[in-house]
């Protein structure tokens, strides 16, 4: 299994006259099997940090390394399902695996995310919610040791998002992979995460850590008044009303 250690991570993008500093001096430890959320307003560098941790973008400064054995298997989910529209749902899962993977193995995963019987459909024939379920299956079918998720439920209606969050938590409980989850939704963050790392913009940096897991054991209820109060506190924090105690 794998944890993540990031030290002094920074990122700047060269512009015409000057450099834009997107991230500055980010230190981060993610334990093996931990579920962390990166939370912050738009433009605070959450996705940039996620992409650097996931190896999709290089950091301008600092280092990222994985603890545990070697280079971990990774799974990704993006804001949109990002399925290949010309492949059937089943072939979209096969795309991230050995191409000789038998259809039965793929179908069992489709069944687990509620898409049993939809293997032969093309993405355009499914609703966005169903497409995002297929993306969940694609991310988990590789049996990742680290799962990187970039606001995967933000484009869905709230009812679908609610269901998918619970399904994600169920699957995470089974596999216990390390999860880095980006969101701008405080309630989603405190509901899902062991730890929430709050980020601020200009330049992007981590400003506060909220250890949700210490106060809210799993399974959690989304209707839990204390959890809701915590999320309201996080909203205050994002709006610059001081630190949570």
């Amino acid at each position: 299994m794998a944890g993540i250690v990031a030290r002094g991570v920074g990122k700047h993008y060269p512009l015409a006259k000057t450099d834009k500093l997107a991230l500055s001096n980010v230190d981060l430890n993610v334990q093996d099997g931990e579920f962390i959320c990166l939370l912050g307003p738009s433009g605070c560098g959450k996705t940039t940090l996620l992409n650097i941790l996931g190896g999709l973008e290089p950091a301008s400064q600092g280092t990222v390394r994985f603890t545990g054995v070697g280079d971990p298997r990774r799974g990704y989910m993006f804001q949109e399902p990002r399925l290949l529209p010309w492949l059937s749902v089943r072939d979209n899962l096969r795309f991230v695996l050995d191409q000789r993977t038998r259809s039965e193995a793929l179908d069992s995963w489709l069944k687990r995310v509620g898409l049993g019987g939809y293997g032969d459909y093309f993405p355009a024939q499914l609703s966005v919610g169903m497409q995002q379920r297929a993306a969940v299956a694609r991310a988990l079918i590789t049996e990742p040791e680290v799962l990187f998720m970039d606001e995967p439920f933000s484009a869905l209606d709230e009812l679908t998002a609610l269901r998918l969050r619970d399904e994600l938590l169920g699957l995470w409980h089974e596999r216990r992979c390390t999860v880095v989850f980006v969101t701008h939704n405080p309630l989603e963050a405190v509901y899902l995460a062991d730890r929430v790392l709050v980020m601020s913009p200009s330049p992007g940096r981590i400003t506060q850590e909220i250890r949700v897991g210490e106060h809210f054991p799993r399974p959690r209820e989304l209707e839990d008044a204390a959890l809701w109060r915590l999320s309201r506190g996080v909203v205050g924090l994002l709006m610059g009303e001081g630190a949570l105690t």
């Binding site: 999709l56 990704y76 990002r82 795309f95 991230v96 590789t142």
Partner: peptide
């Protein structure tokens, strides 16, 4: 570019990326 990023994220071999993406 998003589909190419997906291929990179899952470290797909170049021939498969050319054929399927």
């Amino acid at each position: 570019p998003k589909l190419l990023e997906l291929s990179r994220a899952y470290r797909r071999p170049p021939l498969l990326v050319w054929r399927q993406v």
